[in-house]
Amino acid sequence: MAFDSFGAFIVMEGHGPYVWACYFMFFLLMGALALWSLRQRRSVFAQQRRRMNSAPARDQSPAGASFTRIEPSHD
């Protein structure tokens, strides 16, 4: 361990704010990017499923008013 105590580790001889700001930003942005990408894929799957479920339903319905919600592709 390069530091004597946990306090010294946080302070880093005065350089703490700089070091921790960098690490905070790094994990914040990488985490956000990962979560956003995961949600994007999930929502595309959900959208495809909805489209597939609504397609046969439309075939059975009588001619006339039938609205299928079409969502623009997500990206």
């Binding site: 361990m1 390069a2 580790f9 880093m12 001889e13 350089h15 070091v19 960098c22 690490y23």
Partner: peptide
């Protein structure tokens, strides 16, 4: 962050290197 020695010149601020260089 915790175990590498500090730099003789920059002290602890150089620990930013461990994310700066990979990025």
């Amino acid at each position: 962050l915790a175990f590498a020695p500090q730099d003789y010149l920059q002290g602890n601020s150089y620990r930013i290197i461990f994310i700066h260089v990979p990025s």
